[in-house]
Simulated assay, not measured.
Amino acid sequence: MNKLFKKLLITATAILLVICYSTSVFAAGFDINNDNTVNVNDVTFLQNEISNFSDNTDYDLNNDGKLDVNDVSYLQIEISKSSLENNTQINISCTEYKKNVGDTFTVSVDTNNNVNEITYSSSDSSVAKIVATDKHSVKIKANKVGNATVTVKQCRETVTAKIKVEKARCVDLSEWNGDIDFNKVKKSGVTCVILRAGYGKDDNQEDNKFNEYYRQAKNAGLNVGAYWYSYATTIDAAKAEVRNCMKTIRGKEFDLPVFLDVEEYRQAVLPRRTLTDIISTFCDGIKGYGFDVGMYSAKSMLVDSAYPDELASKYLIWMATPNNSYNELPSFVDIHQYSWTGRVDGISEKADMNYIYNLNY
């Protein structure tokens, strides 16, 4: 036996003595000594076969057409891999989560196996959507009221996290709300804010507080969205509002959609087809820049002046109906503005209050 061959065999045997794992479930062909287990004894058996110049192709484990020390190394790797797989242990940071619609959160994963892939799945992606993963974490977006289970799997080991998602309390704000303490807003139980970015199609119509509100709300850990107040009565005007809106929101990162606010009388008296197309033009335009989109309007205007079912099939619907409960609203409503006179700690003026139930198109 040459020195290199002997050295490789000794190394392989020493490693296997440390990590060997006896089992009867290894792939057929590795139990080459037929003792119903795969361990270091199979390596010894293979060594002897090679030393005796056996030409039994059943022992050509790496299928390279010859029997040599490379088959010993191959057997070592397979035993090591199977040992690692069968001894895998995974844990997650928490097994139960209670979140609000709009929240994005991370579940940390610990594993003693840094070789095999970890997979993640959600029992209901409309409730708990997996948005990013890596070796040690999974990022989840709570998108709808409901319950879901996120499963983390590596080899044959699985762990689960139960996710309960509840409606989100939200305020929508503009410069008319004055100075705001967003930390107090967050502590009051509000988790989301939708900020007026601006209005119309002309220059210099950005909301004077938008950038300030955006920065402070983000720093307070609130989920942020935006809306653009529309005056458009033609398709061309809607396209101009898209361009104007994008001047303001470009480069911003939102947790909630960008909404078109439609409530002008001049729009309510348009033909239903015309108003529906105006809304679609704006929403599709903003969506084309990578933003989630939706529309806001009063119930009477949306139902009487547009085609709500058509719009609801493509965009989120935010409806103002302070005199109705959510259960009384059409089934396509995703966000309910239930009050125009709310009081929230951190906001001195009366505020518009909303509940967010769903963020899925």
Rank of each mutant, 00 (worst) to 15 (best):
302 L>D: 03
18 V>R: 11
34 N>R: 01
276 T>P: 09
36 N>Y: 07
156 R>N: 15
171 V>M: 05
83 S>F: 05
305 S>Q: 05
74 Y>D: 00
360 N>K: 11
198 G>K: 00
172 D>P: 06
176 W>I: 15
332 F>S: 06
100 N>V: 01
280 S>E: 12
153 K>E: 15
220 A>Q: 04
107 V>S: 02
179 D>A: 15
212 E>W: 12
65 G>I: 05
267 Q>R: 08
57 T>R: 04
314 K>E: 05
39 N>D: 13
249 I>Y: 00
288 G>N: 12
358 N>Q: 12
352 D>R: 06
240 A>W: 03
21 Y>Q: 06
254 F>R: 00
46 L>Y: 06
276 T>N: 12
47 Q>N: 14
118 I>Q: 11
22 S>M: 08
182 F>V: 10
37 T>Q: 09
179 D>F: 13
82 S>P: 07
133 T>G: 13
265 Y>P: 09
228 W>P: 00
52 N>D: 14
203 D>A: 12
253 E>H: 10
296 Y>E: 03
265 Y>E: 08
171 V>E: 02
6 K>P: 12
135 K>W: 13
102 G>C: 02
146 G>K: 11
237 A>P: 05
300 S>H: 13
344 V>W: 04
203 D>H: 09
314 K>A: 05
148 A>E: 09
80 S>K: 07
277 D>I: 05
206 E>K: 06
31 D>R: 03
356 I>Q: 01
10 I>W: 14
218 K>Q: 11
291 F>S: 00
140 I>L: 08
131 V>H: 12
37 T>I: 11
220 A>E: 05
285 G>P: 01
90 I>M: 07
128 A>W: 04
359 L>Q: 05
148 A>W: 08
